[in-house]
Design a protein around this nucleic acid. Structure first.
Lengths: 205, 205
DNA sequence: CAGTGTGAAGCGCTTCACAGCT
DNA sequence: AGCTGTGAAGCGCTTCACACTG
């Protein structure tokens, strides 16, 4: 990714949590302490995070729930839908197609790709599986902005290259490998096995 | 989790990466610079991380690949298999049952639970779906140590409570909610939607 | 020499503490 | 009184730099 260093990455993650807290919140105003309690963080942290988008709070009262929620969504770029393509029609890719949280939050899966001829042309959870070599043209015509890599480790880099070539600027990578992409492309790695491995450490002694 | 503060959490994550680098490495000795290059981190970082388990390197040469790999696996508690239970037989839970990385790294899925009567008793990818109210007894008899929560947000806390009650000390949580568990239980949250949300931020301007 | 191990510096995020506003 | 916004302190991870070793 480019610079964008205005807001620290940890803050971005927490802001997503704050948005969810606000969406489930009933009252019309909420204090930083209440947000902090629900999000599992320090109240000063909440205020510092929120200060990145200007002064929203009312001293002595707190924050307007609706106003803050919309401001945070706007800040995160969540005020318009995003088109997502999934590469890899295996078990994981299949699960991601219908993952309820995606559609509910404005992420629309617009295409699913695979390079297995036995899968191409078949329907998977309502989506026609497209050949991976059509990535570039499909991404352009569908206006996709985010690519999800759900292929085996050995083909992940090739898929990433193809996505970058197609103009994708944001990638979620489920393959346990370090992707080499231009600095202008943002990558989030999700290593499911690593989660278990880290837990194994704490299971000892 | 308890204290365990000897090794910082970021280091634990990187050590998992180092293990993979070593498993794919061909030579019999490797330098911190080579590990760093493959893992995408700083070489000094690698040496500092490795120094947590004593002095393994040979000055002027590097580290013995096999020896270091086994030492790291032992440190992480990966030198014996772990039994995993998955709660939630939806699309995500289903994908996790056969996730190739789990079995390959010693994590064996020994049971799958759901509370939907329509699913209980049916087979899913080779596993009989068990009723969620049998969690405690099954976990005990199967010797499960890790629980994976792949249920909707609204039931995640109840599942976590049941897992804790059953003696589980390590949880991977896919539900977008803050779990309240005793300090003795380690939790790793994996919020798939949040990955996309953070990327949306970088897609702006 | 090439490369490790590590004290010290650097850096960035987190938390405190309090002035200021309502 | 209650709560925000923020400078300053605190803290922990990262990186540097170099003495030391085979």
């Amino acid at each position: 990714m480019a610079d964008k260093k205005q807001i620290p990455a940890p803050t971005l993650g927490r802001i997503c949590t704050y948005i969810r807290v606000l969406e489930r919140s009933t009252g019309c105003s909420i204090s930083s302490a209440a947000i902090a309690e629900a999000a599992g963080v320090n109240a000063a942290q909440v205020r510092k995070d929120l200060s990145y988008l200007g002064e929203f709070g009312q001293a002595g009262v707190g924050y307007d729930v609706g106003e803050l929620r919309e401001a945070l969504k706007h800040l995160m770029g969540l005020d318009r839908p995003r088109h997502v393509v999934i590469v890899g029609a295996g078990a994981l890719g299949s699960a991601l197609i219908t993952y309820p949280g995606f559609e509910a939050r404005g992420f629309r899966v617009v295409a699913v790709f695979d390079n297995n001829p036995a899968k191409i042309g078949h329907r998977l959870r309502g989506h026609l599986i497209l050949p991976a070599d059509e990535l570039a043209e499909r991404i352009a015509e569908l206006g996709a902005e985010i690519g999800v890599i759900a292929v085996p480790r050995t083909t992940a880099q090739a898929v990433a290259d193809a996505l970058v070539q197609a103009g994708i600027k944001a990638i979620v990578n489920f393959a346990p490998v370090l992707l080499r992409v231009p600095e202008t492309v943002a990558v989030r790695n999700v290593d499911l096995t690593q989660q278990l491995e880290c837990l194994a450490y704490y299971l000892q002694d």
